[in-house]
């Protein structure tokens, strides 16, 4: 490993460094001590999340979902080393870029992405993986060539394995809120996503019903004081 680690991004979860891992470009995600948090609690959460991340990535990989490969899990060093996804950007950045253009071509592209996203998330839920933090910042688009691209899911720190519709529905709800709050100008994006998501598996219709319940819970909550 080289010593020339470059701070790539400071996420909410930790610092992300771009490193060279035995000749391969890699990402080291270091969950540094959160000083605001009680030490015991911090230790517990960090361990849980590193474990969850490694576990869900493997499970996704087995299911044929594009995710970065896990190179190293290091509980002592509070870090996990993952494959660097070259030639990629976050969906969040891409949406911002495309919506400022706002031409037919970019809308077409956005639609394609939303459909693919429905497919990928559908597959993930079909395999009972709950992401826990689905946002447009946690989905990468990787350009394989000029015309082909794939969607990569990242940031599985809050993920877990569960088959319940409720948990999958909350996952969708988190994504919807992330979309509508950050990209309020493309409301149709989520609708397209949902159409594609519902087509993925037979259970997804049931999850969709549950999702409407979760949605109503949020919107109609009595908020007092």
């Amino acid at each position: 490993m080289s010593n020339t680690n470059i701070l790539y991004k400071q996420g909410a979860e930790g610092r992300i460094f771009k490193i060279n891992y035995f000749g391969k470009p890699a990402i080291s995600k270091e969950r540094f001590k959160k000083k605001y948090r009680n030490e015991e609690l911090d230790k517990r959460l960090t361990k849980e999340r590193i474990r969850a991340e490694a576990k869900s990535i493997l499970r996704c990989k087995n299911a044929g979902i594009c995710v970065p490969a896990v190179y190293l899990v290091d509980f002592e060093g509070r870090r996990i080393i993952l494959e660097y996804i070259d030639n990629s950007e976050t969906i969040s950045d891409l949406i911002d870029k495309l919506t400022t253009k706002n031409c037919d071509e970019s809308n077409e592209k956005l639609k394609e992405i939303s459909i693919k996203m429905g497919d990928v998330i559908g597959k993930m839920h079909y395999n009972n993986i709950i992401h826990g933090d689905l946002t447009t910042s946690n989905i990468l688009i990787k350009y394989e060539s000029d015309s082909t691209w794939n969607l990569y899911l990242i940031d599985f720190g809050l993920s877990y394995i569960k088959s319940s519709d409720e948990d999958k529905a909350v996952d969708l709800y988190v994504l919807e809120r992330a979309l509508t709050s950050k990209h309020s100008n493309v409301n149709w994006f989520f609708d397209e996503f949902l159409i594609s998501y519902r087509q993925y598996g037979e259970n997804n219709e049931r999850i969709f019903k549950k999702f409407n319940e979760v949605r109503a819970r949020g919107r109609k909550r009595t908020t007092i004081g």
């Binding site: 950050k182 100008n185 908020t223 007092i224 004081g225």
Partner: peptide, 26 residues
């Protein structure tokens, strides 16, 4: 954060948008 509300809010495009909130009690 109050007795009845727990919301994380940011302003964008003429609205105070809710980014995060409690999914049950405040």
């Amino acid at each position: 954060v109050s007795g009845g509300n727990t919301q994380i809010i940011a302003y964008s495009n003429k609205r105070y948008r809710i980014f995060g909130e409690t999914i049950d009690i405040a």
